[in-house]
């Protein structure tokens, strides 16, 4: 193929390019909400939601996941541009993660050793982990399909950021149901749920987001 001819052929394809950000919101957003509505319609919403939101410790069940998800989503979108190799926003989730670990360590240190595991385990660890993963998987998979049209130069990082965003938002939705308010419980299981989706996003991204 002659290069000049390739240019002619490329110029003949006048289908307008579609920006990635709006498409991600319009497709992964509904996927997230559909999965969350389905999960919450089975699990139900906690009856004392108003009181929970007024309690600063319990409020962290929403604030921490959102503080991870929002910068991660922003970073995932920024990183679809090929000249952007990294962005400050991608380090914020790690910072929040460190803060959560410190809080977890402090909470563990102030708990009697024989109560530690019962507190961490709570009553609904498995449901929590499954729900967060289920809700987050929908926007992660839909979102990866869209990010694929981007030009991510670090596919693993891009996938991880989308996983963090999906996991964080999923945890925030799940918190509408979950009435286990011990920091030892939610820091552990929300954290593990989000990390699982992050690892999944990184692995899938590494493969699917190459171009």
């Amino acid at each position: 193929m002659r290069t000049e001819r390739l240019i002619d052929v490329l110029a003949a394809d006048d289908t307008a390019p579609r920006p990635i950000g709006p498409r991600l919101m319009m497709q992964a957003g509904p996927a997230l909400i559909a999965a969350a509505v389905l999960a919450l319609s089975i699990l139900g919403i906690r009856s004392d939601l108003g009181a929970a939101l007024a309690n600063p410790t319990t409020l962290m069940k929403w604030l921490l996941p959102l503080a991870v998800a929002i910068p991660a989503l922003y970073a995932a979108l920024r990183l679809t541009r090929p000249q952007i190799r990294h962005t400050p926003a991608q380090f914020i989730p790690a910072l929040i993660g460190v803060l959560a670990l410190v809080w977890l360590a402090l909470a563990a240190a102030s708990t009697a050793p024989d109560l530690l595991w019962p507190q961490v385990r709570g009553r609904t660890a498995l449901i929590c982990l499954i729900s967060v993963t289920f809700i987050g998987l929908a926007p992660l998979l839909v979102g990866l399909r869209i990010l694929r049209e981007g030009a991510c130069v670090s596919p693993t990082v891009s996938g991880a950021m989308l996983g963090l965003a999906s996991g964080g938002l999923a945890a925030a939705f799940y918190a509408l149901h979950c009435n286990q308010d011990a920091p030892l419980f939610f820091l552990t299981w929300y954290g593990l749920g989000i990390l699982g989706l992050t690892a999944g996003g990184a692995l899938l991204g590494r493969h699917f987001l190459r171009w």
Binding site: M1, L10, R18, T80, R81, P82, A151, W211
Partner: peptide, 17 residues
């Protein structure tokens, strides 16, 4: 490589701000 680059510029042009 030049042709691959031109093709990528074409299919990825939505990623230019």
């Amino acid at each position: 490589v030049v042709q691959e680059t031109l093709l990528a510029i074409h299919v990825k042009r939505a990623t230019w701000d």
